[in-house]
Design a protein around this nucleic acid. Sequence first.
DNA 1: AGCCAGGCTTGGT
DNA 2: ACCAAGCATGGC
Length: 286
Amino acid sequence: MAATETLLRVRDYDLAATLDSGQVFRWRQKENSWIGVVGKNSVRLTQTPAGIFAETDAPQKNWDWLRDYLQTEIELGKILKAFPDDAPMRNAVASCRGLRLLRQDPWECLASFILSSTKQIVQIRQIVALLCERFGDRLTPQPPISSEVNYSFPSPEQIAAATEKELRACKMGFRAPNLLAAARQIADGKFDLEKIRRLDYAEARAELMKLRGVGGKIADCVLLFAYGFDSAFPVDVWIERALQRLYFPRRRASEPRLRRFAATHFGPHAGYAQQYLFHYMRTKLK
DNA sequence: AGCCAGGCTTGGT
DNA sequence: ACCAAGCATGGC
């Protein structure tokens, strides 16, 4: 039965923390709900005691795409149990109960993180919103499900057809040529985002880093948030500060030292651990 | 190794 | 209201 709404029964899922934790930049809060776009679907999500209530403009035959995006089927408990048993991790888990990792579209994730460099989250949201309005597909609103116009994330082809000047007008500055180059390589078939899935972590990371404007941090974000490489551990200044403060409070640890520590300390779900530390640091410390 | 590349937010006056 | 400093990643 095609329907425009469903209830995803899930517990231990903090929708607000998940959609507002710096892994994705398209969701906005409206009253008690979150409005966003997944693929070509405008989506409204509402946290309820029974789970996540989801509404879309178009009727859906099944909701697998949304379950996959929200990662509602994973066993969070198992992941949390695999975290190192130390005080910082216990505190982070206790204060960010229900924080999840999404499974995003690789191109949207890559493009968003190319735009993220040396930007704060509020600014990344603005840039991405402008980019979608100007180059994405207009999605027709269906009252009363949605009253506002939404836009799909522009495809590599849509961005490849733009000029650097038009992209700069979305306030992305020096990131414009990087985004344009990536879009063109992908649109021309010279860079294959699907191939990344078949590589191991180190190979996949090296492959992404061939793109201009993609260093280790951005590659790790894409590997973690879009491809599900759970061992990817993006190290940005927040995480560096968190590691320094939580694990080396007495002595100053060099950046390579912190990286080596992170690579071995957090186990097979290091990426999840990173998200908990990041959110803990952003919301609870300083 | 150290500087440079938007533009928005924050903090000081 | 204004102006300076801060943000935070990759490339050269």
